[in-house]
Design a protein around this nucleic acid. Structure first.
Lengths: 146, 146
DNA sequence: AATGATTTTGATAACTAATATCAACTAATT
DNA sequence: AATTAGTTGATATTAGTTATCAAAATCATT
């Protein structure tokens, strides 16, 4: 529930770009930050419908892209056809464990793997700008339940 | 240009499933195997248009899915909105280096990383079924040119 | 080779996630 | 309060892919 910092980041970004802080942007930011970490635009829109039926879906899409530009969100794709957005401000790079049964996403980071990725790239004369690694399978709960 | 094995795999698969070996399937398989390893359905369709204008795009989509079921192809997605298909028969698991400038894909495999992924999953009580790792950046050529 | 049951095909409609359009509206500056 | 420039919501549009369905093709059987 710590909004202060993120709201400040957004405000600063908007000011620098001569953009405006609208009520929609405030509302969507609040909801985004209080929602599970990997949401789609549609999911956010569904949640908004109850409390803010006046906010259109186009605005949700637009605003999430804006958050990415402002460094508050990051686009991720897990191959199910949806673009998801995760919290980015104050979050370092990480990889994902994706449970294919319950849909849970665990964020992980392993420095040894990061180093090996770098050396693997060097062996191939490749200059890494970014990377993604997702391990798909079953979380403990789903694995035990069978 | 070694088609024999793959054609046999397809034939066997079709027979087991009581499906039929059509000329379209033969043509698309041949083209798929002689085409760069990560093609989209649209790309294959474009190439076919010249030599086989009678083959529809729906058939290309359908046939690529069929190849996946038969173990001849594998779906991959690099987040550009296209589903790509790579050769799968006789190809072991591998990861990708993706050049964001020229679009080249290099296939790589690093056993040390594979092992660490396994141990990372275990630390999190997670049971891996499959995974993907893509390193995005610039290949040597594109990096030197600018 | 003809038959017949079943699968496949191509044209096209439909679907879905996401983006573009645009007149009405709103925030922020003067 | 007026002005300017950005923003919004409804909706049309786009793009990749899948569904529909009558006509055509495959293949086992005769």
């Amino acid at each position: 529930m710590v909004l202060h910092k993120e709201e400040e980041v957004l405000t600063t970004y908007l000011k620098n770009k001569n953009l405006k802080l609208t009520n929609q942007r405030r509302v969507i930011l609040k909801l985004f930050l209080n929602t599970e970490i990997h949401v789609t635009a549609e999911e956010l829109y569904e949640k908004l419908k109850h409390t803010h039926p006046e906010i259109g879906i186009a605005t949700v899409y637009r605003t999430l892209k804006l958050f990415c530009d402002a460094g508050l969100a990051l686009e991720v794709q897990f191959g199910d056809g949806f673009t998801r957005y995760e919290h980015h401000y104050g979050h370092g790079h990480h990889d994902h464990l994706v449970c294919e049964k319950c849909g849970k996403y665990i964020e992980v980071i392993d420095e040894r793997i990061e180093k090996l990725q770098q050396s693997l790239a060097e062996q191939n004369n490749f200059h890494i700008l970014r990377h993604r690694m997702e391990l798909y399978g079953l979380c403990k709960d789903c694995f035990c339940k069978k």
